[in-house]
Design a protein around this nucleic acid. Structure first.
Length: 552
RNA sequence: GUCCCUGUAGCUCAAUAGGAUAGAGCAACUGCCUUCUAAGCAGUAGGUUCCGAGUUCGAGUCUCGGCAGGGACGCCA
């Protein structure tokens, strides 16, 4: 990647300038090279001289001059210019830029991949919603974020596993099972009540009806505990099926569905607990078992096992993360949680420390809440009250591509309003179509070229010298850098903005440069460029999990 | 009360570890279809980056103090 090469070049130049006594013997800061926002400043710029100025006790312009002298000429760089108040600006040669079209064609769908991850094993756990009902809109955010992130991490050279943690144990599920059982009995006219902490949604009745249809009244005759367990089991698999299909509708698929219960059945819960105990982080008081998280930096201790003897959700999570790191040996684990789990982060970090693991191996992305709106009125989302807009409804209304694009456009840190009216009304003006339209346009050009039997395989990219052509190439070359940034910072929201920029650059090129013309040499060169652009659009759309339409 | 996230154009949001003149989309306004897709292009207008201090060559970005919105502070998950 050129950016890296320039950084190295600069680093060496600075070191050499220092060795030669041109700048004082001071420590060099982290050297960064970036794209200036003003194109007049060139393709890349560094503010290194400004950063050195304070310690060097020299005028930054002077430092810039002195360092620049040690930057050797390279085929990529046309000129290196020093600019006030102390920047070093690099401008690339048109020739090198044009040649990159051939490189992109050669890389094909691999273009944009980088080696950052070096094959490191990363686990990405997301959604992981309790299977007590359908997914709602907020869950879509985490789903899309996680799925997209995994695409990007894979492109960045990580070995990624996507996992859904199924909370099939615990009190919430028990409440759900009992709710199902109550509805089931009611279907036969028997008196039964939804438990106080139960689920009242219409879907519960729906599922119970299905069970009635499939199994008849056999559960009426079973003793309650057994009936609840068996009905629960059927209900669980039904809910999981529907969650799976809702996610599939969005284009989200998991590699592993991990059962919480398996932690208990496989003995990993016991192992994790005894490890914590052995290391001295477990105490007992008030009849309960506690993890002394406050010793590890959390602001309070947390209960692992209730006085009733039932393990808490937190205890499961200890075992689960023990499993991730120690049993399955992931180098890095990324959890995506909703804002309501924010307070859980310090606990989990404390757990890792207590288990003797480096807490930085766990990264938690917190997605802020999504408030749903229909015009001006807010739609309350609550599983228990039963009134909600499901993810499925949203996807069916708005479309998977638009959903993904809209959700991706906001950084996880910001809470967002999702206006259903707007999302629907916007559908024609939505930026998602702007980007896809560029791809469709390209496809249309390539179709015409095929129809006319034009073979552009030998096109000479050196003919690509005009402003719009070079601007398009420059933009395309940002993709690998973007993949790296998104993978490093875990911020996929950069993708849609790049895609829009790319589309703007392409549409502008399209307007100004006729691709298929009487000039056969130029036609071949431009067809190469257009084919390269198709690759980049296709790549960025697929990274976002969207389709790249051939026609619109 | 404590902790976390957010506050940027009328609206929805960006701003690539502190960089050069804060940018997009929608909405508004003005032009552009006889050639590869007008779901497009070119342009105009729109800002005290919530307020106040501080740090330094430089702050939307960092620190402190306010204000506003959201979330969390359970032997729920």
């Amino acid at each position: 990647m050129l950016k890296r090469k320039l950084t190295t070049l600069l680093e060496q130049a600075a070191a050499e300038a220092r060795r030669e006594g041109m700048i004082p013997q001071i420590e060099l800061p982290d050297i960064t090279v970036e794209h200036p926002q003003n194109a007049a400043h060139g393709d890349y710029a560094s503010s290194l001289p400004l950063k050195l100025a304070a310690n060097a006790r020299l005028n930054p312009l002077e430092i810039a001059e002195r360092i620049t002298r040690f930057i050797p000429p390279t085929p990529e760089v046309e000129k290196v210019v020093v600019a006030r108040p102390g920047f070093i600006n690099f401008t690339l040669t048109s020739h090198w830029l044009a040649q990159q079209v051939d490189s992109i064609l050669e890389a094909g769908e691999m273009f944009g991949n980088v080696g950052l991850g070096g094959g490191l094993k990363v686990q990405l756990e997301f959604v992981s919603v309790n299977p007590t009902g359908p997914l709602h809109v907020g869950h879509g955010r985490g789903a899309i974020l996680g799925d997209t992130l995994s695409n990007v991490l894979r492109a960045a050279g990580y070995s990624v596993q996507k996992e859904y943690y199924v909370n099939d144990a615990g009190t919430q599920m028990e409440a759900f099972y009992r709710s199902l059982y109550a509805r089931y009995l009611q279907a036969f006219g028997l008196s039964a009540e939804i438990p106080p902490d139960g689920y009242h949604g219409e879907y519960v009745t729906q599922i119970s009806r299905e069970i009635v249809a499939e199994k008849g009244d056999i559960f009426c005759r079973l003793p309650e505990p057994r009936a609840v367990a068996e009905i629960g089991q059927i209900g669980l698999s039904k809910v999981l099926d529907s969650i799976r299909s809702d996610l599939a509708l969005l284009g989200v698929h998991f590699d592993v569905w991990f059962s919480e219960r398996s932690l208990y059945e496989g003995g990993q819960y016991q192992k994790a607990m005894s490890l914590l105990r052995d290391r001295g982080y477990v105490t007992e008081r008030e009849g309960a078992v506690w993890f002394s998280s406050s010793e590890m930096g959390d602001d309070r201790d947390n209960v692992l096992v209730r006085a009733s003897g039932a393990p808490t959700y937190f205890a499961s999570d200890v075992a689960y993360h023990y499993n991730k790191f120690e049993e399955r040996r992931f180098d890095k684990v990324i959890d995506i949680w909703g804002a309501d789990h924010q307070g859980h982060v310090p606990r989990m970090k404390a757990v890792l420390r207590a288990l003797g693991l480096d807490p930085s191996r766990l990264e938690v992305i917190i997605t802020q809440m999504v408030t749903l709106k229909r015009g001006d009125s807010e739609v309350k989302v609550s599983k228990r009250s039963g009134e909600m807009v499901t993810l499925r409804e949203l996807v069916e209304e708005v479309g998977a591509d638009a959903c993904r694009f809209v959700f991706l456009s906001r950084s996880a840190d910001s809470q967002m309003d999702f206006d259903l009216e707007l999302a629907k009304k916007q559908s024609a003006d939505n930026p998602v179509y702007y980007v896809q339209y560029a791809h469709a346009r390209i496809a249309s050009i390539l179709r015409l070229a095929r129809q006319r039997g034009i073979d552009f395989g030998h096109g000479d990219v050196a003919l690509l010298t005009s402003g719009p052509e070079l601007a398009l190439i420059r933009k395309m070359l940002e993709l690998p850098e973007l993949v790296e940034v998104v993978a490093e910072r875990l911020e996929p929201h950069q993708l849609p903005y790049f895609a829009q920029d790319l589309a703007t650059t392409f549409h502008s090129f399209y307007k100004q440069c006729r691709v298929i013309s009487n000039d056969t040499a130029l036609t071949a060169a431009r067809l190469k460029l257009v084919e390269a652009a198709r690759i980049v659009f296709s790549r960025v759309l697929h990274l976002m999990g969207m389709t790249a339409p051939e026609r619109m």
